[in-house]
Design a protein around this nucleic acid. Structure first.
Length: 788
RNA sequence: UGGCCCGUCGUCUAAUGGCAGGACACCGGUCUUUGGAACCGGCGGUGGUGGUUCGAAUCCACCCGGGCCAACCA
């Protein structure tokens, strides 16, 4: 298993001792609804990471700072769902509302430091003055109240002296900040509402940005993992911890992409109207993407965890196809769901040559295809087989018989044969129809009793499920389909986007008799139909109710085998996608040409001037633009150029490519350490082949990260490179012997493999080989043998 | 008309600057008393342009595309 970027980070932090060797994560849901499959990813991540490190732990923290929407009922449901998924918070159950007192003191600290103020504007005024993404906000007229006045007002807010909305406490940051979150965010609001845990103790409630980071800090969380939409909030997270002098090491927020599944919505607030509007049976409706709904449908915790594992964790925004969930479900259920027969739409079949009352029992495997137990252990039969009664009258699936079979149809048709699975091969001799012409009964003859092959007339193409008429157990079977037909349902009109027929209730299906005693919550695979789960609420002896968890993978369909025309249409249907993406590409090329291809745009006149000047001084076109936009780099260039005027282009290149990279990737490095004359000297040495480009780069890196002059470092740094063919050639020959397959592939035309051999040499020599020479020697050796 | 983030097979996800790999889906085959499962094989990708480098998915620049942000929600 390869590690995701968060796990790598945790491991790195552990190694560097960043958090005193602790790993503490947390799962912080707001108890305003039910947990859904999107939460499962976060659960797997947070609890997973905690369990992967000795002493690691994951807190369950209810983020209950909004009394309007939160309920104890949701807390209980969340705890139940998390346990069901297989996670355990141990002693670490917390509530943000546990910290109300501490949070309130932190707020006072900010007030006293002049970093927070009471704003008496109306909600509309605050919104108005916040500005927009394009325009800066303006200061509130209440922004400069004295700390004393703020303190007094805030005290009185807490005392309940003011009505809702009269005042808010705001952080005093910057109303013109580019990040909207930083435009004096609201810390506290007045809300005279009963909190499900604290009743009417508090007339003021902290806002998310304020409560969240401080709750993490109070719990000494090390890694605060959240989804991508909180990226903008990281700045206020860090700002607040800094301004209240939160103890170090401080928790650090890292964002990852949420789990988004096609045809599903993963938003508690969008799910609630579906429940409250009566569009589904409840939060645990089997069609709901909630953990409770999935559980009721028969999806196992293992399947959900498997899905999360398959999906991984990254920062890329992504949509997962339902097929992946389906796979995870089937993969798990295939192993654990014993097979049974269920006929959803019964068609009566009379076996004419079976005498009345002359039934027999047939044996069928509970797990066909599973390697039979050979250890002879106790219970082998009971585990491995089931018994089915067979009599004169049976029911088969109406769909398994066609009066006019389409091409490719392998099941029963007039005059044709089919196998009653595990029991007998029958031939259809007669149809009985009602006045409406509807087939109501088939008269068949048993040709072969059980056994393999098909007896006379060659092999039978298909085996169908069936139940014996007198012993079959009636059951209600609920067939579920996706709640939304479109992959990306419109969040503003979910009720209108609901698919019709997402729940189909079959009132009287027939089950093989041993299932008559099924209790709630049992998994079965009804052969050829799918995976089913006896409803945990409604199923009991005497009233059997099953939910379809998932269908079987479809291997055949009438459309597919209806002729060659259809697949072709399918292909052409896929073409527009290809064409449109090609269109995008074409558009991009067109634009590029307009702006002069690789010649980057120079938006302002000032930059244009600098660019022209740099080009005149000898900087290359592509690098000049970089320097024109970076005053610091440009300054170094201007200072270094006179030292080595002929190397102007090289100097500019070093600056634009290598210095920019080092500055961007390593915070320890600093441009201040680089003397312009050293840069010029470096460029000259490389230009005159005193140093290889690689050596130059190593020197530059050393200067930027550790400091020192070029001369010093050239003397002290071990820059030696192995360029001797007498050393390199044997090494490469050895590699060629070790990887004969790659040699063949290289000679077969896979020239990219040269990089593999050079890379191996670089590794073997600890990076000290001269790669140019190594490449040369390797090419020669690989090529020479080619001629033999 | 801003700030931040993100672009690798259809989808999800890997690759200290050194073989672009895996999974799902799809297609084909073997096997099969589930048109299932299993097994084998195939298809298919680094958004674009330029630059740096012996070597770029990876570094630099620009362009294109996508996401998030203007609740007294979280």
């Amino acid at each position: 298993m390869t590690m995701d970027f968060i796990r790598s980070m945790v491991r790195r932090d552990l190694k560097t001792g960043k958090h005193d060797g602790r790993v503490v994560t947390r799962f912080p849901p707001e108890p305003n609804g039910f947990l859904h499959i999107g939460h499962a990813k976060s659960l797997c991540l947070n609890f997973g990471i905690a369990s992967e490190h000795p002493g690691g732990r994951c807190h369950l923290r209810l983020d209950d700072t909004n009394p309007d929407t939160e309920k104890a009922e949701f807390v209980e449901a969340m705890k139940r769902d998390i346990r069901w998924l297989g996670f355990d918070w141990g002693e670490h159950l917390y509530h943000a509302s546990d910290y109300f007192e501490q949070l309130y003191r932190y707020a006072h600290l900010l007030v006293d430091r002049g970093l927070a103020y009471v704003d008496s504007s109306t909600e509309a005024e605050i919104r108005e003055r916040r500005g927009s993404i394009a325009e800066p906000g303006v200061d509130s007229p209440w922004r400069n109240r004295s700390p004393g006045e703020n303190r007094d007002l805030f005290l009185r807010m807490r005392a309940g002296e003011f009505p809702d909305g009269a005042h808010v406490l705001r952080a005093k940051i910057d109303m013109a900040h580019r990040n909207m979150v930083m435009r004096d965010p609201i810390l506290y609001r007045i809300r005279h509402a009963s909190h499900y845990r604290h009743g009417d103790d508090w007339p003021i409630y902290p806002m998310y940005d304020f409560a969240h980071c401080l709750s993490d800090s109070i719990e000494r969380v090390t890694h605060s993992l959240c989804t991508l939409e909180f990226e903008n909030n990281r700045e206020i997270y860090d700002w607040l911890l800094e301004k209240v002098d939160a103890p170090r090491p401080r928790p650090e927020q890292t964002e990852f992409a949420p789990l988004v599944l096609d045809h599903l919505i993963t938003s508690k607030s969008k799910l609630r109207p579906l429940v409250e509007g009566g569009h589904v049976r409840g939060w645990d409706d089997p069609r709901m993407p909630t953990l409770a709904g999935l559980r009721r449908r028969g999806v196992t915790p293992e399947a959900i965890r498997k899905l999360c594992e398959m999906v991984g964790v990254a920062r890329t925004q992504s949509r997962v196809e339902m097929a992946k969930l389906d796979f995870a479900i089937r993969d798990d259920l295939n192993e654990r769901a014993p097979r049974a027969f269920c006929v959803l739409d019964p068609l009566r079949v009379v076996l004419a040559n079976v005498p009345e009352g002359k039934g027999r029992m047939v044996r069928a495997p509970r797990f066909p295809g599973r390697t039979p137990r050979t250890d002879g252990g106790e219970g082998t039969d009971a585990e491995g087989e089931r018994a089915l009664p067979l009599g004169r009258v049976v029911y088969i699936e109406r769909d398994d018989f066609r009066e006019d079979p389409p091409p490719g149809f392998r099941r029963l048709a007039p005059g044709g044969r089919v196998r009653l699975k595990y029991a007998a091969v029958i031939r259809c001799e007669e149809m009985v129809k009602d006045e409406g012409g509807r087939v109501v009964e088939l008269r068949c003859r048993v040709e072969t009793e059980a056994g393999g092959g098909g007896g006379r007339g060659g092999p039978v193409r298909a085996a169908i499920h069936w139940v014996e008429a007198t012993s079959a157990a009636p059951a209600e079977v609920r067939l579920y389909d996706r709640l939304f037909a479109m992959p990306d349902p419109p969040l503003d009109d979910l009720a209108g986007a609901l698919a019709t027929g997402s729940e189909r209730v079959v009132a009287r299906a027939l089950l093989e008799p041993r299932l008559a005693a099924t209790g709630p919550g049992e998994h079965y695979q009804f052969e050829r139909l799918g995976y089913f789960f006896s409803d945990p609420e409604d199923c009991r002896e005497g009233r059997l109710v099953f939910n379809r968890t998932a269908t079987l993978r479809e291997g055949w369909s009438e459309e597919k085998s209806a002729g060659a025309g259809v697949p072709t249409e399918g292909e052409s249907a896929a073409k527009p996608t290809t064409a449109s993406s090609g269109g995008d590409g074409a558009r991009g090329v067109g634009r590029g040409r307009e702006t002069g291809g690789g010649d980057p745009e120079l938006p302002t006149g000032e930059e244009r001037e600098r660019y022209d000047e740099l080009v005149a001084l000898g900087a290359g076109g592509a690098t000049a633009i970089t320097l024109a936009r970076s005053p610091a780099l440009r300054e170094v260039f201007l200072a270094a150029r006179p030292v080595f005027p002929e190397g102007a282009e090289a100097i500019a290149g070093w600056l634009a490519n290598d210095v920019a990279r080092l500055l961007g990737s390593d915070e320890r490095s600093g441009l201040g350490r680089l003397a312009p004359k050293d840069l010029a000297g470096l460029a000259r040495a490389v230009a005159e082949d005193e140093l290889s480009h690689r050596q130059g780069r190593r020197l530059l890196e050393a200067i930027l990260t550790e400091g020192g002059t070029l001369a010093e470092l050239r003397a002290t740094l071990d820059l030696e490179e192995i360029g001797d063919e007498a050393v390199l050639a044997p090494m490469i020959r050895e590699l060629m012997e070790a990887f004969p397959g790659r040699v063949t592939a290289y000679r077969g035309g896979q020239r990219g493999l040269l990089g593999f051999f050079v890379g191996q040499v670089m590794q073997k020599t600890g990076g000290r080989a001269d790669p140019r020479k190594a490449s040369e020697v390797a090419a020669a050796l690989l090529g020479r043998a080619d001629e033999c």
